[in-house]
Amino acid sequence: MPGGKANNNPKILVFSTEKISDPAIDMAGLLKLHYPPTVYTISIPCSSGVKPIWIMYAYEKGFDGVFIAADGSDCPYGDSCTEKTGKIIGHTHALMKEMDIEPARLRMAAICSVCSESFVKQMKSFNEYLLKNSNV
């Protein structure tokens, strides 16, 4: 949305990992691959350390979507990361249903350290989904 105000877009909170997905998000900036400026990142060591209560807190405070930029198989802490992050998503989906929050408002994808284009694609697609489903 060139020239538009930031707050026209849904707000997306990204939990990104310091060693893997942060470099990809940084590189997206370096390459000037644009995505909505209402995407905000909080860096954490590993995607399998995200607490579901943090995600729920973000919805409570008005975020429209939460995206976990997962380490996937690149996780430096071991190959159990993908499975563990998946379980966090599953658990959070259950909490979201309890609170009548559409599970599609939580997304996860593995973002490797050079997956800048993939990250931008994910953000654009998530943003479009949230725009189209603004009543979710």
Binding site: A6, G29, L30, L33, H34
Partner: peptide, 15 residues
């Protein structure tokens, strides 16, 4: 820089 000015160089107000 990477996550505001450069990522949103198309949208100064948003950045």
């Amino acid at each position: 820089r990477e996550q505001a000015s450069w990522a949103h160089s198309d949208n100064k107000e948003g950045a």
